[in-house]
């Protein structure tokens, strides 16, 4: 196994501490995130997913338990918060909450200015960041945020955090609210970024198809407790369990299920569309071979 980059130890979280409304939402989480992996966090609503994400860039500081990001305890008082937040880039669910300047360039520059990048470098960095998310820098540099489509806004939001040259990418339900084309584009650019920049990627998703497409490992979080953490193949085989948590299955898994039920003999561990295509292809060849031999 490669290096551990985020270590979560015995993490608890409560809302409204010290009031009669106090409610514990994370109950002693313990897990590691390895350098360069893509970890998906799935769970029903109110399971504490978004809360957990906010511990990775020290928006929340643990009151009970520890979160260690790149060998630094976020509880440490001498911690350089700016540096940590540069290292851990966070993309929020709604790009509208992340984009608040007038133009694309201004918005991307916001983070750079906060991190005290020199004026001269800023313009070049913005253009580079736009190019990384496959937006034409010349076209988009002076565009108004309001004139962007949903997918473009999302890309600009990513450009805004990528400009800071992060090492860990934290995404909160990144494909929610995107149309199918926007979603495909977005997943491809995340994959591309991961392969090119070797970013560790942690994301929450309610869309299991995204999980299948992106994740190396999946964590199932239910009511603030980790129920499973494993590779996607081992997670999605436990269909009944997932359904009982109120989660859905990837569409490929549902198709495979139906195919097996109707008597087509394929591996039930298939989760991705490519695997399905391959095994159906070999199934058809095998089936066609049988009558030929009998003649």
């Amino acid at each position: 196994m490669s290096k551990v980059i985020i270590k979560v130890e015995n993490l608890f979280h409560s809302y409204m501490q010290g009031t009669p409304f106090e409610k514990e939402v994370l109950h002693g989480l313990k897990f590691d995130i390895y350098e360069g992996e893509k970890l998906a966090i799935v769970g029903p609503t109110q399971s504490g997913k978004s809360t957990l994400l906010q511990y990775f860039n020290a928006i929340f500081i643990p009151k009970k338990g520890r979160v260690i990001v790149d060998k630094q305890d976020t509880k440490d008082s001498g911690l350089n918060l700016k540096e940590l937040r540069r290292k851990v880039a966070m993309l929020f669910q709604h790009p509208d909450s992340q984009l608040f300047k007038e133009t694309v360039a201004d918005d991307i520059a916001f983070g750079l200015k906060n991190m005290n990048f020199p004026e001269k470098v800023i313009e070049i960095t913005i253009k580079k960041a736009l190019a990384t998310v496959s937006l034409d820098p010349n076209e988009f540099f002076y565009r108004y945020i309001f004139s962007l489509s949903g997918g473009e806004k999302k890309k600009v939001a990513i450009a805004g955090i990528l400009a800071l040259d992060p090492e860990i990418l934290v995404l909160d339900d990144p494909t929610a609210g995107l149309d199918p084309k926007g979603r495909g584009d977005f997943l491809n650019s995340i994959k591309f970024l991961h392969d090119k920049l070797k970013l560790t990627t942690v994301f929450v998703s309610s869309n299991m198809d995204d999980v299948v497409e992106l994740a190396d490992r999946v964590m199932v979080l239910v009511d603030g407790k980790i129920k499973m953490i494993d590779i996607p193949e081992n997670i999605f085989i436990k269909k009944e369990k997932l359904l009982s948590y109120g989660l859905t299955l990837p569409s490929v898994v549902e198709v495979v299920d139906e195919l097996i039920k109707s008597g087509i003999n394929i591996d039930e561990k298939i989760i991705s569309i490519d695997q399905l295509e391959e095994s159906l292809f070999s199934y058809v060849i095998a089936r066609d071979k049988v009558p030929k031999q009998s003649h």
Binding site: I59, K82, M90, F92, H94, S97, F110, G111, N114, L164
Partner: peptide
């Protein structure tokens, strides 16, 4: 809630 979201998004990009 909206305000909190905006603040967090800015903090995440290094705003103090």
């Amino acid at each position: 809630e909206e305000l909190e979201r905006l603040m967090k998004a800015q903090i995440a990009r290094g705003a103090n």
